[in-house]
Design a binder for these strands. Structure first.
Lengths: 122, 122
DNA sequence: TCAATTGGTTTCTTAAAAGTAACTAGGTTT
DNA sequence: AAACCTAGTTACTTTTAAGAAACCAATTGA
């Protein structure tokens, strides 16, 4: 096990968290991971409840962090394609382990507290 | 690579995230991971900027999720000890990988954008 | 000429997370 | 008797995240 030091190193975990948290980032990332390229409007259709504002801002943060690439085609009407960067793919194993931990934890919670927490989240 | 399906499975990732997010949960968890048992006041001293209210609420959430155990000693003045549960230790590898991803990402960001983002977070 | 198209931006409002400060119980120490 | 200790709770305020809705630019097709 890697060394654990709580105090100063917590910032590093927050850095990782900041990439992933936000109500929409995980689902955006999963869509981009399984799709190679997606236009803005395709993401909108894939995640119908998201607003343009949220989609834009989350994509911009991911772009700033070099997780997502934004390709603008100079044409009208505009066309913009989003895709995972090479670097961004390095995040995949983490997201996948988080999701599988979550899946198991759901079962564990149900065992502990019963099925009272069934509200869907997305 | 495990199968990725964006739509329905995003909830599971959120479940994992909900355990970890919150401004204080990661640092609380790291302290408990490296300390076996800690009293409420010891956690307060270890994380001086946290308020009682936040410390209490975050610990209660972790307790609800069976990550943290709360042991109350019936004495005055009160004594309450917090520790990771056996189940909670299953979260350690995830937290450790998140932190190391974060560490590497910090270096990556610096390479990309320079050292302009130096504000400490905790 | 006029509506439709795409990928946004802007302003305003609402909801959720976090912070502040005062208060509590009840036994111990001064 | 008064102050102190721990582990909280409560009520209120501030900050941050998210949502709603209107607006925009340039070209195409009807």
């Amino acid at each position: 096990m890697a060394n654990l030091t709580a105090g100063e190193n917590c910032g590093e975990l927050q850095v990782a968290l900041d990439i992933i948290v936000g109500k929409w980032k995980p689902i955006i990332l999963f869509h981009l991971m399984e799709n190679e390229k997606l236009r803005f409007s395709e993401l909108q259709r894939a995640i119908p409840e998201i607003t343009k504002k949220m989609l834009t801002s989350q994509l911009r943060e991911l772009e700033y962090n070099d997780i997502v690439h934004r390709e603008v085609y100079q044409q009208v009407p505009p066309k913009v394609e989003y895709s995972m960067t090479e670097y961004g793919h390095g995040l995949t194993p983490l997201l996948v382990s988080m999701r599988s931990w979550g899946t198991e934890h759901l079962a564990h919670l149900e065992e502990l507290h019963g099925k009272d927490n069934e509200e869907p989240r997305c």
